[in-house]
């Protein structure tokens, strides 16, 4: 890890969903500190609250109670526009289903992210070019998602996420839709990006083998963190 300062700081985080008259407690007092530059894996069964935690840290939904500081912003106190700004400037997502804009080429997907972030879009900066090289998609930039394999799409999604130089990369089951070979390649890439660039990564996964790529593994169950462990050596 490149730095020990906490880039994510969570205290007594609670989230309750209302479905009609039914209240569902998705998170029940989560406490977590993530230092900058850490690659953190979050594992747990369905309904354990890991996706909700991911969405709150990423500013996709507000917490019901507790304090969540992400890249210096108090997510509990900022409104919808503040969370939009958080997504634009501080966090980026990599999803299980890639979530590339289907009508656009890989290049334009990346440009769209740059445009929304208010960054120059005409030419990719040198550091982005090196990321593209590292991801092995430099030659695939003018292809649309439908013309690429799942592995390639996910690598484009990672490139898009990193293009805006986010403080935190949030990966939600990044290997969930990939075969073994591509899964391995993507996990190695994430590890590599973390090591080379010092990129803070939060990855949620069902896959315990994938979780081993993190510096630390947080286990969640029933809306709470039940265990924190170190990975076995890969």
């Amino acid at each position: 890890m490149s730095s020990q300062a906490a880039i994510i700081s969570i205290h007594d985080l609670r989230k309750t969903y209302h479905t009609g008259k039914v209240f569902v407690d998705a998170l029940r007092g989560v406490n977590l500190e993530v230092p900058a530059g850490e690659f953190l894996s979050i594992v747990g069964p369905s309904g354990s609250g890991k996706s909700t935690l991911f969405h709150i840290v990423g500013g996709l939904t507000p917490p019901s109670a507790g304090e969540v500081i992400v890249a210096g912003r108090n997510v509990s106190a900022i409104g919808d526009s503040g969370r939009t700004e958080l997504r634009r400037k501080s966090v980026s997502f990599v999803f299980q289903k890639f979530n590339l804009l289907p009508n656009l080429t890989a290049r334009d997907n990346i440009r769209t992210a740059l445009y929304i972030a208010g960054m120059p879009t005409a030419l990719f900066a040198d550091d982005l070019k090196s990321v593209l090289e590292l991801l092995g998609i430099s030659a695939r930039l003018d292809h649309k998602p439908s013309e690429m394999s799942g592995g390639e799409q996910q690598r484009v999604a990672i490139a898009r996420a990193l293009a805006t130089r986010p403080a935190i990369l949030l990966a939600d089951e990044p290997t969930g839709n990939l075969d073994t070979a591509n899964s391995l390649a993507v996990l190695k890439l994430l590890k590599d990006l973390n090591q080379r660039l010092g990129q803070t990564i939060l990855m949620i996964t069902h896959n315990t083998e994938a979780a081993e790529y993190g510096h630390r593994i947080v286990h969640m169950r029933d809306g709470q963190i039940v265990e924190t462990s170190a990975p076995a050596t890969i």
């Binding site: 996709l60 400037k89 992210a113 929304i116």
Partner: peptide, 16 residues
């Protein structure tokens, strides 16, 4: 709908 969700996840504002 999904594309709008993607744009929002990228930080697209309501204005955008």
């Amino acid at each position: 709908t999904r594309e709008i969700g993607i744009l929002k996840s990228l930080g697209a504002t309501k204005f955008f």
